[in-house]
Design a protein around this nucleic acid. Sequence first.
DNA 1: CACTGTCAAGAGCAGTGCTCTCGAATGTGT
DNA 2: ACACATTCGAGAGCACTGCTCTTGACAGTG
Lengths: 229, 229
Amino acid sequence: MSAPSIRARVRAEMTEEIKAIARRHLATDGANLSLRAVARDMGMVSSALYRYFASRDDLLTALIIDAYNALGTAVEAADAAVKDRANLRGRWLAISHGVRRWALANPAEYALIFGSPVPGYRAPQDTIPAASRTPSALVRILADGVGTGALADAYADELPVPVRADLVRVRDENFPGGPEALLARGTIGWIHLFGAVSFELFGQLNNLIDARQEYFDHQMSAMADLIGL
Amino acid sequence: MSAPSIRARVRAEMTEEIKAIARRHLATDGANLSLRAVARDMGMVSSALYRYFASRDDLLTALIIDAYNALGTAVEAADAAVKDRANLRGRWLAISHGVRRWALANPAEYALIFGSPVPGYRAPQDTIPAASRTPSALVRILADGVGTGALADAYADELPVPVRADLVRVRDENFPGGPEALLARGTIGWIHLFGAVSFELFGQLNNLIDARQEYFDHQMSAMADLIGL
DNA sequence: CACTGTCAAGAGCAGTGCTCTCGAATGTGT
DNA sequence: ACACATTCGAGAGCACTGCTCTTGACAGTG
């Protein structure tokens, strides 16, 4: 058991190689991934793929989890690169640009997780931990700001009762002791971040904005102001 | 020519019926629309459909244009329903909720135009006029505010040079005489509007926010504050 | 009446996801 | 070391897809 049996190892390698090839196909052909084409590139027959993934959806799920994790890693690295941990605004901008940079470098994988959901596909619960890495990084900024008292101005917003109820629940799970009003501002920034990246990536900015990076930075600065960073 | 020849009329009716059935399939099966299934529902054979649409992409393009127009109509109706034309904030909220309402009622069509782009598909220029109806309605709010001087506070923002250049171009085409800084705030609201709707519709709010409408209204109010409405 | 353009149907091609069966290779327990 | 069990890849096959091409029937016009 210590050596996970040669078979298990070669199986893991095969699984990784299938995902790698599938990712390549994803980048060129978009979301309509062809199992047969992947199998062809692997030099085997399509039915053999089913030894590794029970269905095409299973392969997609694996790719989705990998994508969430890759994004999460990029985000955490961008955050960690800001030396002055008290520079909350700098960390927010670093994470924002980190998300955008990853999305531009991996547009197909971004579309996979933030684009329109695949029709029959139902995302399993397995994706949740990987998916929550990015929001967690953002919450950490807020939490640090609460710790130092730097964000105290944002505590007093009035919130509609049902919104407050939702945020209290979210707060208790992810941000114990944090003020809901601050969390409300944070989620607005969070949504705008991905809204802006999606808008750019999905072509909604075509023929409108050319200075993409500067425009993005401008938006994220406005969100930083709104949050109070 | 006055009577467009019975043939042309029945052809137009057929085209509309095909689109209607395709829309129905879109709602249940998502974006991977099957020509054969549509043909089956029409009681004819798949090849016959090619008399009306040169390809599946052509059918999708027609549906996309229809969707943009349907959204545009909904938005314009929502705006027009606000009697007090000087109530800019009310018009902004009316349009926002109009977009969300239309999206929730027609999720597949919304995904078609604002979701991840279909891989091989390249949107033709024909979609542009229909697509710009919603942004135009938003710009009209700003223009009305400029006319009455109600938005003068938002004129003085500093903008990065390339962003200002882009916005000057957009301004000259759609908003003659409007201040770029105001346009900058408006686009932020515009992007956030669709970012919020996409987030909700594409399932990113699952297990997080239950009070969807109140939460949406809260966001749009925050954007109204940001724009200065 | 004849001609021309339009239409639906059918066969067929290359591709898809997926299932099942069948040898062969590999691992494990005795 | 032998026998059993498991795993694997290949192949055939099913039902489906978008799309093309040909064929025969029909309608509108000169």
